[in-house]
Amino acid sequence: MRAAEVRRLAHQARVSPGDSVLDLCCGVAGPGRMITAESGCRYLGVDHSASALAIARQLAGSLPCRFEQAHLPPLPDGRFEVIFLLETMLAFPDKEALMGEVTRVLEPGGRFAFTVEEGRPLTQQERTRMPGADTVWPIELAELTGVLRNAGLTVIWRQEYSSAHQAMATALLRCYRADSPQIARQIGTQATAELITAHQLWSDWLGSGRVRKFAMVAKKQ
């Protein structure tokens, strides 16, 4: 996500000074560190990657950020005013289990702010073409709304970002192709080819409407 998109999502989620914020699959926590610095919230970032969390801790410096390593779900115990899940809902095949955990740890009136790739499940042919297809589980908007509702969450804001993210995927694809020899020396030829293939597919799917990209906020009743 671009910084302006993260800021708008945080604004719609009403992140305020002192709020307890949980950031799921935070990676190196670029958005989380920015939100913490600008809002004065109390931040906990969770990710499965120890190396990503080591970078996050180093970059957080004196910010009031904490980090935990965990495989999700379940979510860490606690009570939170806001939960973020940015760019990774796609990786959860069982979204009902995820939403149940979100509801469990949200305060009453708490907000779940997330991005989602909306569309039909991948066909077998599409799964064969997509690298890492075991982490690619789009969901149609009507089904997602029902899953949220069943978990006690009501959508209060939604914004489509398909065109912006298609442009970003296309720009990254162009750069990866141009720099592929240097990238291959860093991560290997196969990983570089998969990186290019994945971005080509996302550029095509977002451009054609096969997949749409949304940012959303849902509130716990």
Rank of each mutant, 00 (worst) to 15 (best):
G18M: 04
T145H: 14
P76D: 12
L98W: 14
A151W: 07
G18E: 11
Y176A: 10
A198E: 15
R104V: 02
R127L: 00
A70E: 10
G30A: 04
K213C: 06
A50Q: 13
V21H: 13
H165T: 09
A133W: 11
L24Q: 10
Y176H: 14
W157T: 06
P73E: 10
G152N: 10
Q186D: 14
R174I: 00
A3K: 04
Q125V: 10
Q200M: 02
V136H: 15
T36P: 07
L141R: 15
S180A: 15
R14Y: 05
G30N: 09
P76C: 03
E87R: 04
K213V: 00
G209H: 11
L22F: 06
A151S: 14
L44P: 12
V102Y: 07
R104K: 14
V105S: 08
L122N: 13
A70S: 14
T189M: 02
H199A: 01
T123Q: 08
P181K: 07
V147Q: 14
L9E: 14
A169P: 05
L24W: 10
S162G: 06
A91G: 00
T103G: 13
L106G: 09
S51P: 00
F114H: 07
S162P: 04
L24P: 12
L98E: 14
D77T: 07
G207L: 01
H165K: 02
A52R: 12
Y161W: 13
H11L: 07
D47W: 03
A215G: 15
G45S: 05
G119E: 11
K220G: 10
M89S: 15
L122T: 12
E5M: 05
L24I: 10
D204W: 02
E87T: 06
L153K: 12
